[in-house]
């Protein structure tokens, strides 16, 4: 029986420095839970599906907050709120794609407290997984969504490997399109990995959506200058216009030279466990004139290899349409 809305007791730690957070992670090991804005964490706690011994609230760590320009681009602290990113003049001027994407997250109240690190790292929203059933993602032996009776209209078109859950982040596709780098730190050092390594599918790790290890903290997200000020487009389709996760979203960054597409990064969310980068489409449209025919071609070719489940076939034309619009309407 699943008890709702009553959290099991835990010890709350609120470190003010990263090194204190690392020592807490090292001492509690797998009994620790890292929490940023808390919008993902509190669901797990209230449903009593996750019962950590120690919750490490990271929001007091000042060095993980803020946006600053660097010679190579911009560094965003993982604890920077989505509202700060949405309204930051540097982001708005150079990386409008990210500002657009985070402005579509949930509601203003949630964006005021939710963080970019938490948004990118949030766990899958599959209703079976969230209900606490012993599915693959929860360490079990089955997928309840990919069955003849399974409710799977929100699930994957691509990359399903036993688990068919998708990423529900609006920020993740934009970060992937901007070729963001993720800084993961632990007591033993730091590593910097690209978005396509940071987000992991069920074929690699069926229990997690990111490559962050339990002892690591995502401290910073770096946006390279290579994509600053390019043509951008973000669009999200959900059942409700606010406070909802995407059915499908698209983030596109397109570099245009003399009216032709020089280079592009087009990423679709809500169709795979990871932000689904359309590298084949990018290759097809490279060098072509930025015109309606190219946009249509991009949309038509974007859904090749899609494997719909029983109830999510509608995502195929939706995705094709969003990709077409992204290529057609991307502006500087």
């Amino acid at each position: 029986m699943i008890v709702k809305d009553i959290m099991a007791p835990f010890e709350l730690y609120q470190p003010a420095q990263l090194k204190d957070a690392f020592s807490l992670l090292d001492s509690f090991g797998k009994d620790a839970w890292k929490m940023a804005g808390g919008y993902d964490s509190l669901d797990w706690f209230k449903d009593r599906i996750v019962r950590p011994q120690a919750v490490i609230d990271l929001t007091g760590i000042a060095e993980m907050k803020g946006i600053k320009e660097t010679p190579d681009g911009v560094e965003i602290g993982a604890l920077t709120t989505l509202s700060e990113i949405e309204n930051n003049p540097i982001i708005k001027a150079k990386y409008r794609l990210l500002a657009d994407a985070v402005s579509h997250v949930a509601s203003p109240q949630i964006r005021n407290h939710g963080t970019i690190g938490g948004n990118a790292s949030q766990n899958a929203r599959c209703l079976y997984f969230r209900y606490g059933l012993p599915c693959y993602r929860a360490g079990g032996n089955t997928c309840f969504a990919d069955t003849p009776e399974g409710i799977n209209r929100e699930h994957a078109l691509f990359g399903a490997d036993r688990c068919v859950a998708v990423t529900s982040s609006d920020g993740a596709p934009a970060l992937t399109a901007l070729d963001a780098k993720f800084v993961l730190q632990s007591s033993s050092g730091q590593r910097v990995i690209g978005a396509e390594e940071f987000f992991v599918g069920p074929n690699v790790d069926i229990l997690h959506l990111t490559a962050a290890k339990p002892e690591e903290i995502l401290t910073t997200i770096r946006l390279p200058s290579a994509w600053a000020g390019k043509n951008f487009y973000f669009e999200k389709v959900a059942d409700r216009n606010v406070w909802d996760f995407p059915l499908v979203n698209v983030a596109a960054a397109i570099s245009v030279q003399n009216g032709a597409i020089r280079e592009s990064r087009i990423v679709v969310g809500g169709v795979s466990a990871v932000p689904h980068r359309l590298t084949q489409v990018e290759g097809i449209i490279q060098g072509k004139a930025l015109e309606e025919g190219t946009a249509t071609l991009a949309g038509q070719s974007s859904t090749r290899d899609a494997r719909p489940l029983n109830y999510n076939g509608f995502k195929i034309p939706l995705m094709a349409s969003l990709v077409t619009r992204a290529v057609r309407n991307a502006t500087a």
């Binding site: 490997d161 036993r162 992991v200 074929n203 690699v204 790790d205 490559a211 290890k213």
Partner: peptide
């Protein structure tokens, strides 16, 4: 034991 890769196929 922690070395993640696409193993199933």
């Amino acid at each position: 034991i922690g070395w993640k890769f696409a193993w199933l196929a």
